[in-house]
Design a protein around this nucleic acid. Structure first.
Length: 287
DNA sequence: CGGATTGTTCTTCC
DNA sequence: CGGAAGAACAATCC
């Protein structure tokens, strides 16, 4: 379940590998995930990748000498971007995995970019929910405008945070998941941040005290920054561009820990369904 | 084999 | 008109 830290991990790894690479040909195995009115191959073949930016969980690919051409990439729940260097995937540990080990392309490969260098970029997605679609500048601007500020931003304003949550009677968890208010949090990091701030996920947002709000504001940023530092979280399907798992799974305190003792107080971690989402919390120390 | 899984958008309702 | 809440979507796992 890629959230901001997982998408940022992919962005940091893929950016330097793709920069300056020219698209030679494209294989589209799943038409709907290009989700585009534009001619996909005609628009992209011969184009040279420049930088990759990110807002929330959305990746924005740019191209040299193209001010009106972008690729918008969303991994949704099970998307992966895998980079193959001359037939081999090189892991962070320096080991090489052969093409046959990863079997790329495989039955989950939805889009494949063959690059002039001989390198290949694979977009894999077990469920066909993510996309890699073409957008022009106007569309990019429009999409960007729908996202709120990011808690990992050094300038993230905890005054704005408090003002925003104090206007709503929704459960605090629902507000934290609203990408138009705060960008990047998903189910895992919301549960973890609420645990750290000792706030119950079902509390009405407008009943959160200012002191609790300050803690929660800080913890949303902290938990995602700490995760980025260790390559994100792999709970089920996420891998980085080398097919490797993220290490923040070893630091989760409540997500997936139902039935286990709370690391703070020893109370059993509870799991409920809140607004249709699996929700983990400690009934002992979260208030 | 029914239910759970989640990010986002769509639909419905008030 | 807008907020709130559930359904839909996809494809697998348990």
């Amino acid at each position: 379940m890629p959230e901001l830290p997982e998408v940022e991990t992919v962005r940091r790894q893929l950016g330097p590998k793709l920069e300056g690479q020219t698209v030679e040909s494209i294989e589209v195995y799943s038409e709907k995930q290009t989700d585009s009115d534009h001619e996909y191959e005609a628009s992209l073949i011969g184009k040279k990748f420049s930088n990759i930016k990110r807002i929330g969980k959305l990746l924005i690919f740019s191209f040299y000498n193209e001010s009106n051409l972008f690729l918008l990439g969303h991994l949704k729940m099970t998307g992966q971007l895998l980079f193959m260097h001359r037939g081999q995937v090189i892991t962070a540990g320096g080991h090489t995995m052969s093409e046959s080990d990863l079997e790329l392309p495989n039955r989950h490969t939805r889009i494949q970019f063959n690059l002039k260098s001989g390198d290949t970029l694979f977009f894999n997605d077990l469920r066909k929910f993510g996309y890699l679609k073409i957008a022009n500048l106007e569309e990019v601007k429009s999409v960007k405008s729908k996202y709120g500020p990011e808690p990992i931003d050094p300038d993230f304003d905890c005054g704005y945070f408090y003002q925003t949550i104090s206007k709503s009677s929704q459960p605090i968890k629902a507000l934290l998941l609203d990408q138009s208010k705060f960008a990047g949090l998903g189910n895992i990091y919301v549960d973890e941040a609420l645990f750290r701030a000792k706030v119950l996920p079902m509390r009405s947002a407008n009943e959160i005290t200012k002191a609790e709000s300050l803690l929660l504001c800080k913890d949303t940023g902290d938990v995602m920054r700490e995760s980025i530092a260790v390559g994100g979280t792999t709970f089920r399907n996420f891998t980085d561009t080398n097919g490797e798992e993220g290490n923040f799974k070893d630091y989760l305190r409540v997500f997936g820990k139902q039935g286990q003792p709370c690391p703070n107080c020893g109370t059993m971690i509870n799991k409920i369904k809140l607004r249709g989402r699996g929700t983990h919390f400690c009934p002992g120390c979260q208030k």
